Amino acid sequence: MIAEHDVRENENLLAAVMDLNEELAEQQRALARANRQLAAEKAEQQRLLQELATAQAHLVQSAQLVSLGQLAAGVAHEINNPISFVRANVATLGGYVGDLLAIIDAYAAGEALLAQDPSLLARIHRLRERCDLDFVRGDAVAVVAESAAGIARVARIVSDLKNFARINESEWQVADLHACLESTLNVASHELRGSAEVVRQYGPLPALHCCPGQLNQVFMNLLLNAIQSLEGAGNGPGRIFLRTGRQDDQGWIEIEDNGRGIGPERLPRIFEPFYTTRAIGAGTGLGLSSAWGIINAHGGRIEVRTEVGKGSTFRIWLPLSRTTSE
């Protein structure tokens, strides 16, 4: 009886062990499935991160294209004005040259006979008076100088536009941020004209190793944002302050306006992509988010101080660890 009891007990123990083994095996299979699922989820996360990085790059590029598109009409206007008076001056100069040639021809025809033909001499004098030779001589110099100045202005606008876009310079390089600011101001001059007085308060700021074209885009976005903030602000003449300086191993660029300011309910969202309070079609909501992404890629940050009804100040901080000393 005892032996039979022991056999049954051993059989029960064996069955329990087998059940336990089966349970363990099932847990191992479940763990393996969970690991496979986790690996798949990790791969999916990597794919999504890659897509996010690609989308961010496209967002920055799209924001630049949008900003350039907004400025295209202004740049065309800036180029068209000097070209117009160059064209008009060249036409005037052509008329002057024709008159001068007529006088010269008259002198050449009568040079040997002036002493013997008083009528020819009188005709030459009348022609000289009709063409107002003395005035033409003076005005021709002024016209040529004005034409040269117009052409120089066109060249400067084109040069500043190239410096702003830096289409062929995508690599990091040493750049003077004051020069970048000035190029951006020149490109945005049409937007600024009649909207705001620009007050420069530049401090010491060493050349920085950066992507100048991208920083130009940040400056442009913040400038356009300041100009838009001035619309209907009611704070008197619009003013935009540009300040620069350094603090320890950080350089900073500040753009301040006396516009409408940003309400506390909007402030947390201003750097979100596609967030805008402007009318449909009047803004994309990409400018500030693009600026944030570019400055973050440079190892910097953007701080905002604002007060409704008084204006806003955007300060860009950039590390100076990469400078001309490297």
Rank of each mutant, 00 (worst) to 15 (best):
L113N: 06
A53T: 10
A39M: 06
Q61P: 02
A30I: 07
A91K: 01
E44Y: 03
L49T: 05
L127F: 00
N89K: 04
L59E: 00
R36C: 13
L48N: 00
L101M: 07
S84L: 11
A55K: 12
E111M: 08
G110D: 08
G69V: 02
A76T: 12
I124C: 09
R36K: 12
G98N: 14
A40I: 00
E41V: 05
A115P: 03
L120I: 07
L49D: 11
R36G: 15
A43C: 04
I124G: 13
E129R: 13
H58Q: 13
D117I: 07
G98T: 11
I104Y: 02
G95L: 09
L49N: 09
D117W: 07
Q46M: 14
A63G: 15
A32I: 08
T92H: 01
F85H: 14
A57D: 14
E78S: 15
V97K: 01
F85Y: 15
A53N: 14
R33L: 06
Q70D: 10
R128P: 02
L59D: 00
A57S: 14
P118V: 06
N89P: 00
L71K: 02
A34K: 15
P118Y: 03
V86G: 05
R33A: 06
L65Q: 14
Y107V: 13
E44D: 07
V60C: 08
Q61V: 04
V97D: 06
R33Y: 04
R47A: 07
A40T: 02
G94I: 05
Q61H: 06
T92S: 05
R126I: 03
A34I: 13
N81S: 12
R47M: 04
E44Q: 06
L127Y: 04
L121D: 07
A106W: 06
N80K: 15
L113Y: 05
R87H: 07
L121V: 10
S62H: 12
